[in-house]
Nucleic acid binder design. Structure first.
Length: 821
DNA sequence: TGGTTGCGACTC
DNA sequence: AGTCGCAACCAT
């Protein structure tokens, strides 16, 4: 057999090295090597050993080049499947990222194996007359076997590789590689009775005076193998007692690899509910397509809040289990609450793996392994779980499909819905998107028939949607109410409390005051590193920047004009909490936002106390808008519906509509009718009006016209090129240069309409973050032309084929960004 | 003429 | 990113 060639992604993040490298796959490795395995290869002048991932194996190669050989193979089976490799390559192209970035979310979590080179001396008698070589020899004599990197660092010799190679050729030293596992599989010591004895035999060996030892033996006889921890806990004994039994050769102690448990609590069984008529129709429609392996592979379940989408999902997943197919269920990170997990784990038990950001690296690795090894058939997780390495994927469910967290904000900046679509296409699986407020893109596809639209218009509890009362805050002001609570909200709150019901208050702003400003000259305190006004936090009496987290003392006189009239403006959740406490001193209040949930478990505690009805009023940011299902909540107060509406982003109306609808949906989920008080300064805005009526179609129809007119998705693709760096002048200059190059091409395609297709270069809406000045160029590209522009942008911004001065400047490219701040 | 330093090209 | 080679510069 002759050798073959392997195309490999190299583990090096330099953009110049972002391509496939070809290596010789020697005869001796041929049989054990497959695509998707990791290998060790020599790289660069020094033949430094680095890791690589095999993407392709080919028999022949056309180019004439002196290829190097693969040194070793790290895996005994592929760590990722061919389909996932194909998906990774697709992602790299689609979202303009490097290979390494594209494969990051696909590969096992945590870079769990590291390649290390070791060096040691094997012939101690040799004496070199070259000073450098003698230094190396002396070093190795002193330390024995060492890491090559350490030797290099300690000796700091020029051209050290040459000397090492020389010594190696003379057989004076030897280099070896080893793979260090940085994440260890968690092990636990267990004990079990030795076989071949009856209980009475063992008891007689132990002797009747050793009470504790006898207890242990009997316990093990009853339970079989147990962990030492459990034995010591249940019998209140110590390790020495167990060791004594081991010494008597009646029990043996072994180390077992155990899975870290991502779900640590005992979860009650979640019973199957009978589907109502509507739910059943949706269920039947989807299953009919699945069973007939229809070409319709995508469904949008458009169901109002509380319509029982989850139960439909659960029963479809059950059907997939009967078919022996795997299912991925994606939920937004913020609604990956214990509540959601409980439902899936409660129904399917140990058949479920859970992947979310709160897991430690070890836990995440274990969950990944469970999926990879086929120990589970269902995974519930946040966006990156779309890459779960199932062998026989049958279904992907994306709940709250419209959520912006499905778009990755780091490279690769993928859109989960699109990735899922690609994946089901490759694996012949099905895709269910579910939400009360579909994204414009998805609903548009549904209307065009590309996605099958299924509706759930009734609440599962037979009640109607909550009644929404719109309050015009300008009128309140006219009537002399300067407070942030309208008269109506105040009254409804006290009624609700009197009835013993719970309240949720929603405000999408953290902190106490959102900015502080000088009344005399208008100066606003901004973060020194970011172009952002700082938020005042009362409990620490400091200002904090929400972008870089920097804190600062509160000034007492204006730094600009020395006036004393420094005032606090804007209300955040922290202040609301204080005001509510004052207004309702007897109510039990808790607050949930990213400031109050930093500690591990605090999130769960707040939700638990809400569930147990120990909390009367829950105040929170958008964290509380998703998935929470508290039966006793009958009033939701939306303090200021306008906060998201005024952002300089084309999605602001859509986001506002979604948020209001979702938050409103938290009300009246039990047996009682719910109410929502919606306070706003823009009562006539279409987004607010349709949200009040909970009229998605109405909103869609208004919004889609604007999108078409002003050329925004789904009618066009956006590409946001963000150029940022510490030197404002250089960033601006580079932006202009990039604009000119790309602008020429835009002009060539769109001619006199080109100004509508390239915007910029402008300072980004947030001009500076963490001392980086930010400029942006926005391209609006049709489906036909986006491919060519991706190539152009890559050439200009990544490979720098135009030799622009990109020193100390970074460029971030985002295809169809979810926000353009 | 040897030695140091800095930039640019190259990495299968 | 890391490394080597080459050219330019300096101290004899």
């Amino acid at each position: 057999m002759k050798h073959k060639y392997a195309r490999i992604i190299i583990d090096n993040s330099a953009s110049k090295l972002d391509k496939l490298f070809t290596y010789i796959l020697g005869e001796e490795l041929l049989e054990i090597t497959q695509v998707g395995m990791r290998v060790v290869v020599p790289f660069g002048h020094g033949n430094k050993l680095i890791k690589g991932l095999i993407i392709e194996i080919v028999d022949e190669i056309k180019e004439n080049y002196k290829f190097k050989k693969i040194i070793d193979v790290l895996d005994d089976k592929p760590i990722i499947s061919k389909n996932l490799i194909e998906l990774g390559i697709w992602i790299k192209e689609e979202y303009i990222s490097t290979y390494l970035e594209a494969f990051q979310p696909i590969l096992p979590p945590g870079d769990y194996k590291q390649v290390n080179s070791f060096i040691e001396i094997i012939s101690k008698d040799y004496k070199s007359n070259i000073i450098e070589e003698e230094k190396i020899i002396q070093y190795l004599k002193k330390y024995g076997i060492v890491l090559l990197d350490n030797l290099k660092k300690d000796l700091n010799i020029l051209n050290i590789n040459k000397h090492i190679k020389n010594l190696e050729n003379l057989n004076i030293i030897e280099t070896t590689i080893d793979i260090k596992t940085s994440i260890t599989k968690k092990k636990q010591k267990c004990a079990a009775l030795c076989e071949g004895f009856s209980l009475s035999e063992i008891e007689s060996i132990v002797g009747e005076r050793a009470f504790k030892q006898l207890e242990i033996v009997r316990l093990l006889y009853g339970n079989g193998e147990m962990t030492l921890e459990d034995i010591m806990m249940s019998l209140d004994t110590s390790l020495s007692t167990i060791k004594a039994l081991e010494a008597k050769n009646v029990i043996y102690i072994l180390e077992k690899v155990i899975n870290r448990e991502a779900v640590k609590r005992e979860i009650a069984k979640y019973k199957k509910h009978k589907l109502n008529l509507e739910q059943n129709q949706v269920f039947q429609r989807i299953m009919k397509n699945v069973n007939s392996n229809s070409v319709h592979r995508e469904f949008l379940v458009h169901g109002i809040t509380g319509s029982g989408k989850t139960e439909v999902y659960l029963q479809i997943v059950e059907q997939m289990l009967y078919k022996d197919k795997d299912t991925i269920i994606l939920v937004p990170e913020i609604s990956l609450t214990p509540q959601t997990i409980d439902r899936f784990v409660g129904r399917f038990g140990s058949n479920v793996a859970v992947l979310h950001s709160k897991l430690s690296q070890g836990e995440r690795f274990d969950e990944w392994r469970k999926i990879k090894e086929g120990k589970v058939k269902i995974v519930v997780g946040a966006r990156s779980a779309v890459f779960a390495p199932f062998k026989d994927l049958g279904l992907i469910i994306i709940d709250e499909e419209h959520e912006s967290t499905y778009k990755s904000s780091q490279n690769p900046k993928y859109q989960t819905v699109e990735v899922a679509r690609k994946r089901i296409e490759m694996e012949d699986a099905f895709l269910i998107l579910g939400t009360a407020t579909p994204s414009l893109e998805t609903y548009n596809k549904a209307l065009k028939g590309e996605v099958e639209l299924l509706e759930l218009n009734k609440r599962a509890n037979q009640l109607n949607l909550p009644e929404v009362v719109l309050i015009d805050m300008r009128e309140e002001l006219k009537d002399g109410n300067k407070s942030i609570f309208s008269q109506t909200l105040y009254e409804e709150m006290s009624n609700t409390l009197n009835k013993g019901k719970q309240i949720i208050l929603f405000l999408n702003k953290r902190g106490f005051s959102s900015f502080i400003s000088c009344r005399n000259c208008g100066y606003v305190v901004k973060c020194k590193s970011c172009e952002i006004s700082m938020t005042y936090y009362k409990h620490i009496h400091k200002l904090r920047c929400h972008y870089c987290g920097e804190t600062e003392e509160v000034p007492h006189i204006c730094p600009e004009c020395n006036s004393k009239y420094i005032k606090y403006f804007g209300v955040g959740t922290e202040q609301i909490e204080e005001m509510v406490k004052e207004a309702f001193p007897n109510a039990k209040i808790s607050r949930m936002d990213s400031d109050s949930t930093t500690k591990k478990g605090s999130y769960e505690n707040i939700l638990q106390s809400m569930k147990k009805e120990e909390t009367d009023i829950l105040i929170g940011t958008q964290m509380i808008s998703k998935g929470l299902d508290f039966e006793n909540v009958s009033l939701v107060g939306i303090i200021a519906a306008d906060t998201t509406l005024n952002l300089p982003d084309y999605r602001a109306p859509e986001k506002s509509f979604q948020l209001i609808t979702q938050v409103s949906g938290r009300s009246g989920r039990g047996k009682e009718h719910g109410k929502v008080i919606l306070q706003t300064y823009n009562p006539d805005h279409y987004s607010i009006v349709h949200a009040k009526d909970q009229d998605y179609i109405g909103f869609f129809n208004s919004e889609i016209i604007l999108r078409k007119e002003f050329l925004y998705p789904p009618f066009i693709n956006l590409m946001n090129i963000l150029i940022y760096g510490k030197n404002k002048f250089n960033v601006g200059k580079l932006s202009k240069e990039i604009y000119n190059i790309i602008g020429r091409e835009i002009y060539y395609i769109y001619e006199n309409d080109y100004k509508n297709h390239i915007i910029g270069p402008n300072p980004a809406p947030i001009e500076k973050i963490k001392d980086n000045y930010r400029y942006q160029i926005i391209l609006k590209l049709s489906d036909e032309s986006i491919g060519n522009f991706k190539k152009l942008v890559k050439r200009v911004c990544i490979y720098n084929e135009y030799n622009l001065n990109i020193k100390d400047i970074k460029i971030s490219i985002d295809i169809n960004p979810v926000n353009i701040l």
